Computed example of a mutant assay.
Amino acid sequence: MDQDDTPATQFYVPGQYRPDQSVGFLMKRVMSSILAQADERLAALDLTHAQWLPLFKLASKHCDTIAALSRDLDLDPGAMTRSLDRLEAKGLVRRERSTEDRRVIHLVLTEEGKKVARKVPPVMAEVLNNHLRGFSEDEWKQLLALLSRMVANGDAMREPPAA
């Protein structure tokens, strides 16, 4: 059952499943294309998506620890640490021990990090707009709504069943 307790529609049937018609496969292809195009444009800043993504998150103040970034970006904490080590080596990020809890290390953008992070949103807007070429505003809004519903359905599948 899905989140509103109605049976899930059977759009895919074993034996008739075609990967080229898979929502997951197509979403992965779109994401791969978006990341490749963003990486190509951000290479001039010496950044890969493993670096510009946490840089952007830090700039938008969504996360400020390795654990929070790892959860938010669905990445292994070890991989996140390596990306942040590279950002720190480039002088874009620094680590600061929390004054409330000495076990917590906060991540802070340097002035150079803030300057570089400001260059990410225009690149992402360009890349995403190019991927949405030919869509109407209504189609764009519908796509966002449909993807949000899929995220909610996926989240509901991970929640423990109600007692």
Rank of each mutant, 00 (worst) to 15 (best):
residue 81 T to K: 13
residue 118 R to M: 14
residue 46 D to R: 09
residue 116 V to N: 01
residue 26 L to P: 02
residue 99 T to M: 13
residue 19 P to C: 03
residue 26 L to K: 02
residue 106 H to T: 07
residue 111 E to D: 03
residue 75 L to D: 15
residue 91 G to S: 05
residue 90 K to L: 11
residue 54 P to Q: 01
residue 121 P to Q: 02
residue 35 L to D: 03
residue 43 A to L: 07
residue 122 P to C: 01
residue 74 D to E: 10
residue 100 E to D: 13
residue 80 M to E: 07
residue 61 K to Q: 06
residue 32 S to D: 06
residue 99 T to E: 15
residue 43 A to S: 05
residue 91 G to N: 02
residue 46 D to V: 05
residue 76 D to M: 14
residue 121 P to C: 08
residue 37 Q to N: 01
residue 82 R to K: 13
residue 49 H to V: 03
residue 66 I to W: 09
residue 36 A to C: 01
residue 71 R to Y: 13
residue 60 S to G: 04
residue 35 L to G: 01
residue 91 G to D: 05
residue 112 E to G: 00
residue 34 I to M: 08
residue 121 P to V: 06
residue 118 R to F: 12
residue 85 D to E: 15
residue 90 K to D: 09
residue 76 D to I: 15
residue 96 E to Y: 12
residue 25 F to Y: 15
residue 64 D to E: 09
residue 120 V to C: 06
residue 60 S to Q: 07
residue 78 G to C: 08
residue 21 Q to T: 06
residue 24 G to F: 02
residue 76 D to L: 14
residue 27 M to S: 04
residue 106 H to I: 07
residue 100 E to I: 07
residue 21 Q to E: 10
residue 102 R to K: 10
residue 112 E to S: 01
residue 25 F to R: 14
residue 120 V to F: 09
residue 118 R to W: 13
residue 54 P to K: 04
residue 59 A to P: 10
residue 108 V to L: 02
residue 31 M to E: 10
residue 92 L to C: 08
residue 30 V to N: 06
residue 81 T to L: 13
residue 57 K to V: 13
residue 116 V to C: 00
